[in-house]
Simulated scan of single mutants.
Amino acid sequence: MQVGDLLLAMRRRWYLVLAVVLVAVAATLGTVWLVGPTYEAKGAMLLIPPGATVQQRLGTGASTGNPYLALSGLTQARDVVIRSVGAQATRLEICERSGDAAYEAMRKDLCLGRPTISYEVTPDFDSSAPVVLVTVEADTAMDAVTALTVVMDQVPVALTDLQSSLNLRPKTSITSISVMADRVPQVVRKDQVRAGVVAGGGVLAVGILLIGLIDGTFSTMWERRRSHRERPVPDWGLNSEADNGWTLPAISDADSVEHSAQGWILPANSPLPSGQEGETTAGGGSTDGAPLNGRRLVQRR
């Protein structure tokens, strides 16, 4: 079906187009309501260099330098921590641990075959500092905040595990501090919008195609009926005016003129038109099987 034909069909069946639009809007709203929004929470952990790398005040153990000035050497350590926290082993450890009601609800959604909670541990690409950025997405605000806290707590645990086998002194170990953590997650509706557009667009496309199919079917049926009613009838001069000034009845007048397989049958006492030949019939058959008595009009060759 051409685009022009489809547009004409939509114009003729405008009431069906209106119904399809209403169904598409309902499908969009229903899908948006069923999918629901997601909640995103972010947090950041900063790695702090060991105290031994900062100048110490003699006899007091207090630092005379600023540790933030020595952050440039912790990039490689940050990458190792990110790999450790984002590993599957850390995820399994979170799933095997028990906690309060909020933790148990979060753990149930995180450890499903198709979990509704996801988290990502990455560097902070907007900063050159050794920052570990944690991003959590969940179906509820409570799960997002709880999962963010649990994953961020894994950063100092990973640092301790990585450095414990090195027999380092406490002052030579890398530590971490929390820079920021969302307490109110951000509402994200991109999944809702995507699902709603797909549902509404699909219903609209299928509906328009069905309208074109229905219009084409009814148009074909109408043309067949019209061609059947307007079937052409041979013109043998029955409706033309004769030389003697009289006119034969119209061929559609079934009482005056009848058509059979042998030709046009006129009443027995009716005159023939000028230039036509006829012969008398008796008991001839008509198209409906009834006997005919009259004169048969024969076409001149």
Rank of each mutant, 00 (worst) to 15 (best):
115 P>I: 06
107 R>G: 03
161 D>A: 06
86 G>R: 07
97 R>F: 02
106 M>S: 06
93 E>F: 00
202 G>Q: 10
82 I>F: 03
128 S>E: 14
210 L>C: 13
200 G>C: 07
117 I>A: 03
128 S>M: 12
87 A>H: 13
190 K>L: 11
201 G>V: 02
150 V>H: 01
127 S>C: 07
198 V>N: 08
142 M>H: 03
177 I>P: 00
150 V>F: 02
83 R>D: 00
98 S>G: 00
131 V>R: 15
169 R>L: 11
155 V>K: 04
164 S>E: 10
92 L>M: 06
165 S>W: 00
83 R>M: 01
167 N>L: 08
137 E>I: 13
76 Q>Y: 10
154 Q>I: 02
180 M>N: 11
199 A>I: 10
170 P>G: 01
95 C>D: 04
138 A>F: 10
153 D>C: 09
198 V>L: 15
125 F>D: 14
134 V>S: 08
111 C>G: 03
167 N>D: 14
165 S>R: 14
217 T>N: 08
146 T>C: 04
107 R>V: 02
118 S>T: 11
181 A>Q: 14
124 D>P: 08
172 T>H: 12
158 A>F: 06
115 P>E: 06
106 M>T: 05
82 I>E: 02
146 T>D: 06
94 I>V: 15
205 A>M: 12
121 V>N: 10
154 Q>N: 11
212 G>F: 02
217 T>V: 15
72 S>I: 00
119 Y>H: 06
170 P>C: 00
187 V>C: 05
120 E>H: 12
109 D>W: 01
100 D>H: 01
203 V>W: 06
96 E>L: 08
193 V>E: 07
206 V>A: 15
146 T>Q: 13
115 P>V: 05
76 Q>D: 10
208 I>R: 05
81 V>Y: 07
217 T>S: 13
119 Y>S: 04
154 Q>W: 03
95 C>H: 01
206 V>K: 02
209 L>M: 12
190 K>G: 04
191 D>F: 08
202 G>D: 09
72 S>W: 01
82 I>K: 02
92 L>H: 05
172 T>P: 00
197 V>L: 14
208 I>N: 03
184 V>N: 02
102 A>C: 01
194 R>P: 03
185 P>W: 01
123 P>Y: 08
167 N>Y: 08
115 P>W: 06
210 L>R: 08
144 A>D: 09
145 V>T: 04
140 T>W: 09
103 Y>N: 00
91 R>Q: 09
167 N>Q: 12
166 L>N: 09
213 L>C: 07
105 A>H: 05
137 E>R: 15
191 D>N: 15
110 L>G: 05
75 T>E: 15
207 G>Y: 13
170 P>Q: 05
174 I>R: 10
100 D>C: 02
95 C>P: 04
212 G>W: 00
121 V>W: 12
73 G>H: 11
141 A>H: 01
83 R>T: 06
186 Q>R: 15
153 D>W: 05
187 V>I: 13
82 I>R: 00
125 F>L: 15
144 A>S: 13
196 G>A: 13
193 V>W: 12
209 L>T: 06
83 R>V: 02
123 P>W: 10
133 L>M: 09
130 P>Y: 10
104 E>K: 07
113 G>S: 14
149 T>L: 00
194 R>I: 11
85 V>A: 04
105 A>V: 05
208 I>A: 12
141 A>M: 03
193 V>T: 13
148 L>I: 06
148 L>H: 01
155 V>H: 03
